[in-house]
């Protein structure tokens, strides 16, 4: 086992699948010689050649269309959208085209595309780089949306995503790229899509989170433990489809739940999770299911992002409301 950052684990997963399956192609803006703006594809073009790891012209819609066409020729494309804020340029290819490939072809075609893309706040990017747009993706039937919270999961989830026969949006939180290392096996392994992970067991409250908010939620759980609250933390890992079984089993056990997301409050994943809980477990609840989110503005300019982003303190505050309701 090696100690890896999340970005290294991602490179390792790409390398694993490029080796495993000659139909895997990695492409996008600056992913070739430059190895990507975050070095996620570092060394891959050298190892696997320009035929399989290549730069494209600078146009996100073109990249999405290219992926669809390559999938129609039996390839397993893994394009990179340089920053997920640029997704608006490629919305038709994603939501209008690849997500509907099975539907449109009466189930006779599919698009096994994995779109990788960095997102997430706390790293002082310019506008349109950091926004959490997973809710937008989750609203498109036909897509799966995966957001790892740590290096180990990133590798196993990315390998699963690439092998999946449906289009997967794989979102990589920029703050997690190099913020910590973890033991990551050098051999291949998969983590199933659609399966959440119980990061910490507890009996008084369930915190459901994903991406960078998992770390914040774990910090909050530790704080709360000092006050004798026993908090369970669930990392969704896949936000579409949700792992309802794990969520509901936990809520039925603790009787209290809250959802934490970095995205704005309006619509979005947290709202879906709350709805699923009230649909299925309202009689197990001792308190309303509250949310910790960013405010309903577009992602804050970097001067304001520290306040804008939810953190462990906010989570503790809301958790106490749920715990003492």
């Amino acid at each position: 086992m090696a100690q890896m950052t999340m970005i290294q684990a991602i490179t390792d997963a790409l390398k694993t699948e490029l080796k495993n399956d000659e139909n895997v192609l990695v492409f996008g803006e600056d992913v070739g010689n430059n190895g990507g703006v975050f070095r996620a594809t570092e060394g891959l073009q050298k190892e696997f050649g320009e035929d399989r790891v290549f730069d494209t012209p600078l146009a996100e819609s073109g990249i999405g269309g290219l992926a669809i066409g390559l999938a129609l020729q039996g390839y397993r494309p893994v394009p990179e959208i340089q920053f997920f804020g640029f997704v608006f340029e490629v919305m038709d290819s994603i939501s209008g085209q690849m997500a509907r490939m099975r539907y449109r072809s009466g189930g006779s075609q599919h698009a096994p595309v994995t779109i990788r893309s960095p997102f997430g706040g706390g790293v002082h990017t310019p506008e349109m780089h950091a926004d959490s747009l997973e809710g937008l993706m989750a609203a498109s039937p036909g897509l799966k949306v995966v957001i790892p919270s740590n290096p180990y999961d990133a590798k196993g989830l990315l390998i699963s995503a690439i092998r999946d026969n449906d289009p997967v949006i794989f979102l990589e939180h920029m703050k997690l790229y190099r913020s910590f290392r973890q033991e990551v096996p050098e051999e291949e392994y998969t983590i199933p899509l659609g399966k959440a992970d119980i990061k910490r067991e507890g009996k008084d409250l369930t915190i459901i989170a994903y991406g960078a908010m998992v770390q914040e939620s774990l910090k909050a759980a530790e704080e709360l433990e000092k006050e004798d609250y026993s908090v369970e933390v669930i990392d969704l890992r896949t936000v579409q489809p949700l792992d309802i079984e794990t969520i509901i089993a936990s809520v039925e056990k603790t009787g209290r739940a809250m959802v934490v997301q970095e995205a704005q409050k309006q619509a979005g994943i947290a709202a879906s999770v709350v709805a699923e809980i009230t649909d299925r477990a309202i009689l197990s609840l001792d308190a309303p299911v509250l949310r910790v989110t960013a405010p309903d503005t577009v992602f804050a300019f970097s001067q304001a992002e520290e306040v804008w982003l939810p953190n462990a303190k906010d989570i503790v505050e809301t958790a106490k409301k749920v715990l003492t309701f």
């Binding site: 269309g65 669809i68 066409g69």
Partner: peptide, 25 residues
């Protein structure tokens, strides 16, 4: 073939992908 495309122009970028796939194959 693909079924007829409804979104105007979407097939142009996909055609390039199919063509690139043919070139690679």
């Amino acid at each position: 073939v693909l079924p007829p495309q409804i979104i105007i122009g979407a097939q142009f970028i996909q055609a390039t992908g199919v063509a690139l796939g043919m070139q690679k194959r």
